[in-house]
């Protein structure tokens, strides 16, 4: 059993402490917006926020997340509507297949929180998620659009 706080809500989950956070989120909490891509923290499809910092949830365990605020793609929007990154993604028609985009959006939201006006080089350094469809040009445009929103 583990108590996790996901998107501001408390979950008591029947899960072993060494389970990767990704699978606890997907299978035990039932939040499937966070995706499995590689399981070895290479691709970033599983990116969530842990106390506001972007982490690859396949690479950390449930026990490491206990007591922390976990935010997933489902919790990014507020009562006032979509997060500005989601809005920019919509306006720039970013996703193709879309499978990597939850992680991409979470990584970008964390970047903009720390660095509200990132340069292209900042983006290159911070955003290392894999997108096999190749949406990078739209991702970059949308990051700048969100930064200027």
């Amino acid at each position: 059993m583990a108590n996790l706080t996901i998107n501001g809500k408390s979950y008591t989950l029947d899960v072993e402490p060494d389970t990767p956070l990704l699978w606890a989120i997907r299978e035990n909490a039932g939040l499937t917006g966070t995706k499995y891509g590689c399981g070895i923290a290479q691709c970033g499809a599983c990116t969530v926020h842990l106390d506001g910092t972007a982490v690859r949830s396949c690479g950390i365990t449930v026990s490491e997340a206990v007591g922390k605020q976990i935010t997933t793609i489902e919790g990014l929007a507020s009562d006032n509507g979509l997060h500005k990154v989601q809005q920019a993604w919509l306006e720039n028609d970013v996703p193709q297949c879309g499978y990597c985009q939850s992680g991409m959006i979470m990584a970008v939201a964390a970047l903009l929180k720390d660095n509200p006006k990132p340069s292209d080089q900042d983006i290159n350094d911070a955003i290392t998620n894999i997108c096999r469809c190749g949406t990078f040009a739209q991702v970059r445009e949308a990051i700048h659009a969100a930064a200027n929103a």
Binding site: T32, I73, W89, G98, Y99, Q101
Partner: peptide, 11 residues
């Protein structure tokens, strides 16, 4: 696109 930015799209 809409469901692909909120995590709601079901694969």
């Amino acid at each position: 696109t809409a469901d692909k930015v909120t995590g709601a799209m079901m694969y």
